[in-house]
Every structure is written in structure tokens, then in C-alpha cells.
């Protein structure tokens, strides 16, 4: 099969998460869903509109591929309008993954900005599946307003049932908000971890990830253990369209998940 040919999937279920975001559970018209690793992405095709890279945010109860999608462009808007039974095309999963087993024996710090929580959910679910293998686990989530927080019930469950320190901060509080306000970096002060024995998984806007990574490094976390997920537009996902280059890297193949030991120098160059 040609690497650019999508496999037909149907929308199994659709759950609105907030005003502009929905979570779709997808299953192939025939055969089982492919396996994936935390941090990998698929190329999702909305017929007649286009195709975009989309992080996988979970596996559904019936083995479905779960994507949380925010309506920001033509393709993501078309995908957000899909209803159960509708057809979409899926290629992948593609790309590098967060090495969750490699964090065994370490404290784990998960830092999400906005929709970055969607791919990191797969990390947290794997941490929970093997909870005893890890030390202290902290999840820091930043969001624009209390209303835009993703997966609020799941976050509460992580905190209450799985011994995870969950911290949420918002940019713009509403009158009912009693939690922290401001950047996610400010919450790093509030969590407990042993920097030299810590693995960190970070996903969010690039500026936020750099600020978080620099902060973690200053505290003594090793650069290769601060692992980001980088974003670029992609037309192919398989290393042939050239759009996702970051210096020597093709982020569809060499990323999106990348250690800060390699990413720091590249992200520091303007317009690379």
C-alpha cells in the first residue's frame, strides 16, 4: 500500500469536551486498531477537506483509537463536526514515543499546556497501569480558563485514586476559581520531586515547553530526561513532504517526542 493512502475508519463515539474541543473514538471499518505508544500521532483525513497530524490521546474501552481535537483550522473543524458512523481516514501511528518504562524507579513530572494534556493522557494512563514502578508522580496542567480545562473528572480521579499530585493553573480565573493563576512554571515550586532522579514529560506551546524545560534543568533534572513533544505542520507524516523539518530533523520521523538534550539547541535558533 502507498504510504499516503489512509485506512477508512468510522467514528465510534463523540464526546464534546468544551466549546471548541471534542474527543472522537475511531475504529477501522475492518480489522483491529493498530497499537501505539504514548506520544505517537496519526494523520487524520477529513474527506474533501484535508489531512492533519493529530496526537493520540488514548485507547478506548473497545480498543478504539481516541483523539481529542480542537477546532482551529479547516480540517480540525471538519473533524470536530463528525458524528458517530461518519467516515474518516487514518494513517499511522507514526513518530517517536515517550519512554514511560524508562522512567521506572524515578519520580515523574508531567507538565501540560492547554491541549498538550491530550497526548500526555496516554503517558499518565501507562504510569497508572504500573503505578508501583514509579516514585512520586506529579501532573501540572495549565489552561486558559477553568472552563477550558480538559478531562477534569479524569484529573480528579488521578489525584484521588492513583496517588498523583495533580496541580492545575489558569491564565484567566473566573469568580469561582480558587486555584493558582499564571504560568505552569510557577507550579513546579509546589510539587515534590528529586531532580537527579526525575523523568519529565512535557507537551504544550513551544514557548511554554522551553520555559518548563529550562526551569527543570536549573533544578538539576538531566536534559535527556526532559522530554518534549514538538509541533510542526505535516503533509505526509512519513518523511517525504519536507514540511516538518527542524534543522537536521524530520519531526515526523525523528519526533515529535524529543529529549531536551537534542531539542534545546535547535529551538534556540530563530526561524529554524
Amino acid at each position: 500500500m502507498h504510504p499516503m493512502t489512509p485506512v477508512p475508519y468510522r467514528v465510534r463515539s463523540r464526546r464534546p469536551d468544551r466549546a471548541d474541543t471534542v474527543t472522537l473514538a475511531l475504529e477501522p471499518l475492518s480489522g483491529p486498531c493498530p497499537g501505539f505508544l504514548p506520544g505517537q500521532f496519526t494523520m487524520i483525513y477529513a474527506r474533501g477537506v484535508g489531512e492533519i497530524p493529530m496526537s493520540i490521546s488514548g485507547r478506548g474501552r473497545t480498543g478504539t483509537l481516541v483523539h481529542t481535537i480542537r477546532a482551529v483550522g479547516a480540517v480540525s473543524r471538519a473533524l470536530c463536526r463528525k458524528r458517530p458512523g461518519d467516515l474518516v481516514g487514518v494513517r499511522g501511528p507514526y513518530g517517536t514515543a515517550w519512554d514511560v518504562p524508562g522512567a521506572a524507579g524515578l519520580d515523574v513530572v508531567v507538565v501540560a499546556g492547554g491541549l498538550g494534556l491530550a497526548p500526555l493522557r496516554t503517558v499518565v494512563r501507562e504510569l497508572i497501569a504500573h503505578r508501583s514502578r514509579f516514585g512520586r508522580i506529579s501532573v501540572i496542567a495549565g489552561t486558559r480558563t477553568p472552563m477550558t480545562l480538559l478531562y477534569p473528572r479524569e484529573l480528579a480521579r488521578w489525584r484521588d485514586a492513583h496517588d498523583i499530585d495533580v496541580q492545575v493553573t489558569v491564565d484567566h480565573p473566573d469568580p469561582a476559581w480558587k486555584g493558582p493563576v499564571g504560568l505552569v512554571t510557577r507550579l513546579i515550586d509546589r510539587i515534590v520531586f528529586e531532580p537527579r532522579r526525575t523523568a519529565s514529560f512535557v507537551c504544550g506551546p513551544e514557548a511554554m515547553m522551553r520555559a518548563v524545560a529550562d526551569d527543570l534543568l536549573r533544578r538539576g533534572v538531566r536534559p535527556e530526561r526532559v522530554v518534549l513533544s514538538l509541533e510542526r505542520n505535516m503533509k505526509c507524516g512519513v518523511g517525504r513532504c519536507g514540511h516538518c523539518q527542524l534543522g537536521p530533523l524530520l519531526l515526523c520521523l525523528d519526533g515529535p517526542v524529543l529529549g531536551y538534550d537534542r531539542a534545546a539547541g535547535l529551538l534556540a535558533v530563530k526561524e529554524l
Binding site: 474527506r47 474533501g48 484535508g50 503533509k235 505526509c236 517525504r240 519536507g242 514540511h243
Partner: peptide, 26 residues
């Protein structure tokens, strides 16, 4: 130079869609 982009079109009914790949430039 191999970079490419993709384009999507539908027929007038909207029932049939095609995607094509064409040369692109950085």
C-alpha cells in the same frame, strides 16, 4: 528538491473527493 504538499478537491455533488500531491517549495 522533493518537498510536496497535498490538495483536496470534491466534485460538485460533494460525494466524491480526491487528494493529490504536488511540488511545493520551502
Amino acid at each position: 528538491c522533493f518537498c510536496s504538499t497535498v490538495e483536496d478537491v470534491t466534485d460538485l455533488s460533494g460525494d466524491v473527493a480526491e487528494r493529490s500531491e504536488r511540488w511545493d517549495s520551502c
